[in-house]
Structure formats: C-alpha cells, structure tokens
C-alpha cells in the first residue's frame, strides 16, 4: 500500500517536471533569446539567418547602452516614480478595500463599479486632458505628475485585489479585537494588515511594475531628458534609422534588475504562509 502511493507520487512529479519544462520553454525562450542577442556584436545580431549562439561573446551591447544613455538618471527617475506609486496605491487602495470589505454602506457597489470604470477609458484619451490639469497646477515634467497618474491607474487594481484578500480573512478575527477594545481603524492595522501581507506585497509589486513599464504617460508628461524613465529611455533607442539590438536587449535586461531585486526581497512574504498559523479559530 505504501509502495503504491510512493509510485504514484513519483509519477506525479515527472508530470510536474514535464509540464514545467513546456511552460518554461515558452516563458524562457524569448528571454534566453534576449540574453543571447545582448551578447552579440551589432553586426552579428543582424545576420540573416540568425546565429543561434554568439560566435564571439562581447559586452558591446552593455557598454554601448551605458555610454550612450544616462542610465543612472533614468533609473533614479523610474525608482522615484515607481516606488512612491507602489506605496501610495497600495496604501490608498488598502484603505478603500478595507472600507468596502468590512463596512456596509449604500455607495459600496457604486464605488467598486466606479473604480473599475475609471480604467475603461484608454490611456490615449486620458493623457491629453490630464496634461491640461497638470498645467493648471504647474506639475508638468515632475515626478509627482507621474506618481499621481500611475497611482490613479494602479489604484483600481489595488482596491479590487486587496478587497479579495481582505474578504478571505474571517470576520470573527477583527470582531475579536473589537471586543478587546480596539477601534475598527486599529483592527485594520493589527489584524487585517499582517494577515493579508502577501496580498499587499503582491499588490505593491503590481503597482511598481505598472509604473516601471509604462511608456505613454512618461512620454507625454515629461519633456527633459533629466526626467526620462528607464522605459522611455529604452523606447527612445528603438530608432527609425537604427536599432542596435544587442544594446536594446541589454538595456531591457538591465531594466529588469531593480524589479527582480524588489520582488526577490519581498518574495518570502508572498510565499511564506506564516500568516495562516493563527487564523484558525
């Protein structure tokens, strides 16, 4: 009996690995191709038909990108917009989600619907009028303009996601703290926040990446090179007359590094499962 179950488990693992392999090829092949390309020389990257591996590995792409573009400034700008965006949208979204999740009030449905609706107008049409608003407040070409814009785009997603997470926390728990003499507001910080931490982190990662990867708003709402974000800087290097593929790929890969670091750092919170221990009543 024991042996059979072991066997079954063993086969299951093979299936998992096989599936994982297929998915990994689909997921990783383009990334692998980007890495390979980034290590080629400019001329080799353009060869027809393409070479599968670099004939001669070179760091040309990385050097070129670094020399041609003020990447440190780009990174600074991206961090200064994506970081606050992640914080603000998660915080504001969290508060709103808590309200919708734990209180019953007439505008509840309307608010959740409205929040989703704000996302339905394509960014193309938002960016023009928003520009006029920014002019009124003298915010054009500032980080704040981008932070506010991205927060508004990310907020609905954050609210919806966090509402889902908060709902999964049993209501008895925060009621218990209420009995202990806390206000609903402190219950939020003492119970809900720690318990839904994985969700909050996931939401933060989401908003961070949204702001990091955006092009249209950064393109239209900044003017000087000193305000340019990483994504905009990269988009600008897809020139009309020349695409330096190795450098473009190198830049795209480097642009991922902060996100990877950010995510790896937070990953343990997402997957730790530490939060569940105390929940069972």
């Amino acid at each position: 009996m024991k042996q059979i179950s072991k066997k079954v488990r063993f086969n299951w693992k093979i299936v998992i690995y096989l599936l994982l392999a297929v998915v990994l090829i689909y997921v990783l092949f383009p990334i692998l191709w980007m890495i390979i390309t980034s290590l080629k020389s400019e001329q080799e990257a353009l060869l027809i038909p393409p070479t599968w591996f670099p004939k001669k590995i070179t760091t040309f792409g990385f050097r070129y990108m670094w020399q041609m573009k003020p990447f440190l400034i780009y990174f600074k700008n991206s961090l200064l917009t994506a970081g606050p965006t992640a914080i603000f949208s998660t915080l504001f979204g969290g508060l709103a989600a808590y309200s919708v999740s734990r209180f019953r009030f007439p505008l509840r449905k309307f608010f959740m619907g409205f929040v989703l609706c704000t996302q339905m107008i394509p960014g193309v049409l938002l960016v023009g009028p928003y520009f006029k608003v920014l002019n009124k407040f003298q915010l054009y070409d500032t980080h704040l303009a981008l932070i506010l814009g991205y927060t508004a785009v990310a907020l609905p997603f954050c609210t919806w996601m966090l509402k889902g997470y908060f709902d999964s926390i049993p209501r008895e728990l925060d009621e218990a703290t209420l009995v202990d003499g806390c206000t609903k507001f402190t219950a939020f910080f003492k119970v809900i926040l720690p318990l839904s931490f994985p969700g909050i982190v996931a939401t933060g990662v989401f908003s961070f990446l949204l702001a990091w990867g955006d092009l249209l708003w950064a393109l239209c709402l900044t003017s000087s090179e000193s305000m340019s974000t990483v994504t905009l800087g990269i988009a600008n290097s897809v020139g009309e007359y020349r695409v330096v593929w190795p450098a473009l790929m190198a830049a795209a890969l480097i642009a991922c590094v902060p996100s990877i670091v950010f995510y790896s750092f937070l990953q343990k919170y997402i997957v730790s499962g530490m939060t569940k221990g105390g929940v069972k009543g």
């Binding site: 504001f92 709103a96 309200s99 009030f105 960016v127 023009g128 928003y130 927060t151 508004a152 609903k184």
Partner: peptide, 20 residues
Amino acid sequence: LAYLLLLPAALVLFFVLLFP
C-alpha cells in the same frame, strides 16, 4: 469612517481621471 477610508483613493482618482 467608511467614507473617510475611501477618501484618499477617491481624491486621487478625481484629480487625475475626472476631467479626462
């Protein structure tokens, strides 16, 4: 309190998206 909690989110959304 419920409405107050919605306020920051609503303000940002209004500032950025209402006019557009």
